[in-house]
Write a protein that binds this DNA or RNA. Structure first.
Lengths: 329, 329
DNA sequence: TGCAAAAATGAATACGTAACCATTGAAGCA
DNA sequence: TGCTTCAATGGTTACGTATTCATTTTTGCA
């Protein structure tokens, strides 16, 4: 392992000068710079980022705690986050976390002294929130939110639930199902609340509400359960595009045609939903800004400008009316 | 920043003992362990991974240099790689690299003294290959391959090209197009070679071959160019599922029905191709093993067992006959 | 030419950990 | 009891860098 000391010896200068050549070359005479650079080239010297972090207390590393990639929402956000962070000179530790492994992920982030944490996977009442605040680690959540109501970037989830219900109601549906996820997660809770509120406003019962674990298998079972009911639903509001896409997959493979036999609407407006073969009707941010992008740009702002003001962004939403819903007749 | 020295002072022992409690507790008397653990709890001590790396010369970090996530192949592989690495106790630095930024990515990996590198984005003749070998950094490429022909995991790309052509030939097509990518990349080169060879075996001209930059825009232009030909192709062999999916998207939006108006076949057999609304006919590994998984498990094997034997895995392929191709009539 | 100010360089140190070597104390045994 | 062996612990150092402070060299100017 060739170190800056080796370079120094080889160039006939002190290690300090080598360090200066790399960090503040304007403080070093031109010929010295050349000498040192030549030695660096010759020895193939590459500075050790860990040693630097140790003394500078800065790692240029960000931890991303994302949901699983089989959910296309996290595909879009992960890409945006990693790319933006890299463009700003930060490396990204990526983890796809299921809720059980959350603590491990947190610890890993802290042990590595990351400069910041951007995460989706936070439970409504997760104690990690306080921990990060105490340790003075900048962080932000996207999509999901904590009860403390700080440092988040989200879409207006409640309103998304409202719009989802309204959309199929306006199409004349009465038997409307909801396929959601665990209510310990703010996203699922708020979207469902919006849905439920709208349904009861229209005096419609909620016999079709299913809470899944959002896995492929879970959605499959939910769909089958719904369709085996005496009077199956004619429209399904899915809590996320991921669930909507799974549902459509199941429906199609079970011989149903979407939207002729059943309407499906999602929430998130993920990229793949625009595909010509999918054309998923969904609810998404009016600005069509990627939530991951919003989160990471805010986080890096927090890191670099040490601003302590809370980031609270809630994007308003609208219906993206595509081809998976249809008027009830 | 609370350090192991602080813990030592607080527990009334030496820093060495604190280190031992965490790493080799069986060498420490029970009551001492308890004392130290109590101090650790009380002070919320968390060890500094960078300091540890510095002295141990081991980071438990792997760099992943992946292609962009808008290509579903990289969605599948990234998920597999990150999850497997995490399960083995490794963190993963993820970068989505375009070919220009390759060198930056390499440098970042080396500066951070990662334990290994797994990458897709290597050019056929990239000099980085030698560099990594010289620096004794374990690495492996998946999907793409280097001319040196070492340390790779791939599918049989040539044969995939052959099968792709054969498949549409057997369906009776004669006007067969190829939409590929830059031939500086092994994947594209070999797949095309297989396609081209099969075509010339059948005495068919290759007036329909287009090399794109694999971007959305590039594929769109390629498709439009093809369909504006006097006698447009009746089947399109796409070099990757990503290109096939883009092509189908364009075709659908341009009013064509796939496969009634035009057949499309991909290569890679990505997860999303199985979706009920997509049902992409494609060529993929017989074993259906995720290439990313193969690569990362081999890499970690190399890291932990210091085995120097070259990893050379070429998975054989078959046709996954789904619903985007149809007999020509 | 002489002197102060500024520029350029170097020596020493700190960051937080694990590893090596040294020391202490306890246990085992004749 | 006296000796050896082993368990338990501590002191010191190294890892590779940036930084602080000290020293040397150069520059500017009267």
């Amino acid at each position: 392992m060739v170190s800056s000391k080796d370079v120094a010896k080889h160039a006939g200068v002190s290690q300090t000068t080598v360090s200066r050549v790399l960090n503040t070359p304007n403080l070093v005479k031109k010929p010295t710079v050349d000498k040192v650079m030549a030695a660096i080239e010759e020895l193939h010297y590459i500075p050790n980022a860990h040693a630097r972090s140790l003394v500078q207390n800065k790692t240029y590393t960000i931890a991303l705690l994302s949901g699983p990639l089989h959910n296309p929402f996290f595909v879009d956000t992960t890409a945006a986050i990693v790319n933006y962070a890299n463009s700003k000179g930060y490396r990204v530790h990526v983890q796809f976390v299921n809720d059980e492994k959350l603590n491990e992920a947190y610890t890993s982030a802290v042990e590595n002294k990351v400069d910041g944490v951007v995460m989706s996977c936070i439970l409504l009442d997760d104690p990690i929130f306080e921990k990060f605040e105490k340790m003075d680690i900048p962080f932000i959540t996207y999509n999901r939110k904590h009860i403390n109501n700080k440092h988040f970037v989200e879409i207006d989830n409640y309103q998304a639930g409202v719009l989802s219900a309204q959309h199929v109601l306006e199409l004349g549906h009465k038997q409307i199902a909801w396929i959601g996820g665990p209510s310990t997660v703010s996203t699922f809770k708020n979207r469902y609340d919006g849905f439920a509120h709208t349904m009861s406003d229209h005096m419609l019962s909620q016999q079709y509400v299913i809470q899944t674990d959002t896995t492929k298998q879970g959605v499959k079972e939910a769909f089958e359960k719904l369709m085996h009911l005496p009077t199956p639903p004619t429209a399904i509001c899915a809590a996320t595009d991921a669930i909507a896409l799974q549902t459509i997959d199941e429906a199609t493979k079970a011989g149903f045609h979407v939207p002729l036999d059943i309407s499906v609407v999602g929430i998130d407006n993920v990229d793949i939903s625009k595909h010509g073969r999918i054309e998923l009707t969904t609810i998404g941010s009016v600005s069509e800004q990627n939530l991951g992008y919003l989160a990471i740009s805010e986080l890096i702002e927090m890191i670099e400008n040490k601003k302590n003001s809370c980031v609270k962004i809630t994007e308003s939403v609208k219906v993206f009316n595509r081809k998976t819903t249809k008027a009830y007749q």
